[in-house]
Amino acid sequence: MSVDQGVFRPASVDEAVSVLARLPDARLISGGATLVAMINARLIEPAALVSLAGVDELHGITENPDGGWRIGAMTRHRDVAAERRFTGTLALVQQAASLIANATVRNMGTIGGAIAHADPGLDYPPALVAADAQIEIASGKGRRRLPASEFFVDWYATALQSAELVTAVHLRAASDGVGLYHKLARVSGDYATVSVALTMSSGVAGIATRAAMGACGPTPILLEEANALLSGSPGESELNRAGELLAAAADPVDDVRGSAEYRRLLIPRMLARAFTEARAAIGART
C-alpha cells in the first residue's frame, strides 16, 4: 500500500479496513461529491483520507450466474444511469441514478458513497429499498449483507459500524414487470422534495407491488401493509388507503424544499401517479 502521509491509497478492501481500524478519524473518499462539499462548509475536518480509487473489486457492474447483479461501491452514478441491462423491475435503479444531481456530478459521485452518507433526500435509498437490494459491507471480520431496508437506520445514519465500509450493492434478478422511480424536485438536479420508487410484476394472483417513498422521513418508507393493498387486484380505495398509510408513517422535515404538510400531501399523489403508470405499462405488456 502506498502511504502518502495523510492520504492512504489501499489496493484491497482488507487494506482499507485495516487503515480505518487503525485511524478512527480517517474518512473514506470515493467520488468526493458529498465529502468535499462538507469539508468546504467546515462541517467535517478529516485527519486523514482513505481513497478507494485503487481497490479494483469496488469498480463496475457484474452479472451473477443467477441473473442478479453486483454493483461495486465505487461505481459512478453515470455508469448506473447508462446501464441498459437493468430491465423490468430493476429499471428503477437505473432511473434513480439518472436523476441524481446533474451530468457533471454523476461523473463523480458513487453508489457506495451516496448510500453511506444516507441523506434522506437522495435518490438511491428508496430505489434500493423498493428493489429489495442487499448492501454488502466489509469489516475486519469479513463480509456481511443487509437488506437495504435495514441498512438505512436514521437521519444520515446507516447500519455501518466503525471500520466498516460498503463494498457493493446486490440486486436480485429482474422480474418481468415494471420498475419506476419518480422524483419531485424544485429544479432539475435538486434533492428530492418527495420521491417514490415502485416495482410491479404480474402473476396468476394478480399484480405484486412494492413501493417505497423517499425524502419523507429519516429512512425510505416501505410498508408491507401498503404493499399488500397494492397487490392482487387493487382498486381505487386500496390505492387511496395505501397512500394514507404511507403518509401517516411519514416523518418529513420542514425545509426550503417544502413543508412537512406539503410533503405529506404529495405522498398519496405521487404514489397514485407511479402506481397508475406502472399498471398501464404492465397492461400494455400482457
Binding site: A41, R42, L43, P120, W155, Y156, P218, D251, V253, D254, D255
Partner: peptide, 14 residues
C-alpha cells in the same frame, strides 16, 4: 455559523 448552514430541517428532528 457552520451548523446553521446544514440541513436545519433534519437538525430539528435530531
Amino acid at each position: 455559523g457552520r451548523l446553521g448552514k446544514f440541513a436545519l430541517g433534519v437538525m430539528k428532528k435530531k
